[in-house]
Design a protein around this nucleic acid. Structure first.
Lengths: 91, 91
DNA sequence: ATGCTGTTTAGACAAACATCTAATTACACC
DNA sequence: GGTGTAATTAGATGTTTGTCTAAACAGCAT
């Protein structure tokens, strides 16, 4: 919890890419890792940060670990951002 | 430009606080710095990052430098965030 | 030109980050 | 119990970050 962790998590391109992949469907760690050039260990590290920031949820099944998006935190961020003029409020 | 810089800029509590201070009114660098415990040099460093991320604009006047909010980049961020379910789209 | 005030830049440094390789854990299946 | 596959954790390493002190720059006033 906390904006610090959330924004930091969102600051890395790999992590943003992971979140985008996760729109709609769950994916296993290996499946996610296969989409990147970096090692599986590195992707695992990124997943752990996303998990710590509460941006993804994990569920175990067989010996796979599936990740899915948790959009609720992103909505909090949107809410926070909306305090800055939001859009065209004062036409 | 780029989400990397923007999110990174938003990840620091001091920088978020500065942005909130700047809602509505311009403030000089010294005025901003006086609100924090850290040195003026440190605040200057944070301001430079905010400026680089295009989140603030500066205007010089006398020997003061005034900063003001530039909300447009924040709106881009909101737009990017809205791809993640936005709200309660699929009731 | 000299000095004063506001602000930034330079240099140093500890802490945090992203990445790798190697080792370890966690399950399932034979 | 042993083997194999999926994934994480540990340890090492180079880079980036946030902070400080001290120095430099920019204007204005004298």
């Amino acid at each position: 919890m906390g904006f610090q962790e959330t924004f930091r998590a969102l600051s890395d391109p790999i992590r943003r890419e992971i979140l985008m992949m996760l729109r709609g469907k769950k994916m296993s760690a290996g499946e996610i890792a296969s989409k990147f050039e970096v090692t599986g260990a590195t992707v695992s590290y990124h997943l752990s940060l996303l998990k710590k920031a509460d941006l993804v949820l994990e569920t175990r099944q067989k010996n796979f670990i599936y990740y899915e998006l948790n959009a609720s935190v992103l909505e909090e961020i949107m809410l926070w951002l909306s305090q800055f003029g939001g859009k065209n409020d004062e036409t």
